[in-house]
Amino acid sequence: MNSNANRNAKIKLFISRFVVYAILIFLAFLCLFFFWLMFVNSTRSNAQLQSGFALFPKENFLKNFYNAWHDGTIDIPTGMKNSFIVAICSALLTTYFSALTAYGTYVYNFRFKKAVHLFILAIMMIPSQVSAVGFIQLAFKFHLTNKLWLLIVPSIAAPAVYFYMRQYLQATLPLEMVEAARIDGSNEFRIFNQIVLPIMKPAMAVQMIFSFVGSWNNYFMPSLLLNDAKKKTVPVMIGTLRSADFTKFDMGKVYMLMLMAILPVMVIYIILSKSIIKGVTSGSVKG
């Protein structure tokens, strides 16, 4: 080996690193750019927005916030309250009952155990839109439109969350632990709540976050079910915003509303990004 070859290799590595970092920075820029514009524009008055492009924030943030919060047509505080109710309740129900179901098919030996497991896997990929027609029809028939619980309760049966929990149980819960608890005198529900749930905490947390984000962002079903302004969730309000007549709108306020819509999820993400990204892999690809 001579030093020339060595130097060439070094130069090659330097160039490839340079190119790779350039690509990464460009993509990162692309991901952040539009949100940055949204933020900047949410700090500008309508007049400022009409006058031209700006890359840096202005001073009207609080004014826009006040206007957006007290808007007559888009009642964002109510929307956020409704969204929080739906998202938090769904997250709690979906994680608890998916864990319960996964525990049921994992720990107990019953006749249809395998069939039940395969069935849930089989329905995992069916899009929720396929049941929408019947769902809407029933909702109208029984006058259940504008009922938030109708968006919450179905989350009890979440095949994908079940699958994740089941994988997690398989990896972390030895059956002997359950038997030890039985001998210690615990009944089956108590075993689940006191022994198994604490062990499943990490999995529950990850799924709670994803479920929360999923319901917070959910647009299709809520847009069909909620038409009462007092019951609308945030995405539905954003949809209404789009269909409003734009020439009459204070654009600063519009950007502010969008910022508010994504803010809760952004805050969660900034705090928990590490575990969320970990959760992406452990959830979707078989271990």
């Binding site: 002997e176 001998i183 210690d184 005198g185």
Partner: peptide, 20 residues
């Protein structure tokens, strides 16, 4: 009779301690 009412105790091969 269920295990809890048999007045027995058991030590498992994997110990089966509650990790939390």
């Amino acid at each position: 009779v269920e295990p809890k009412d048999r007045d027995i105790a058991m030590v498992f091969q994997t110990y089966a301690l509650y990790p939390h």
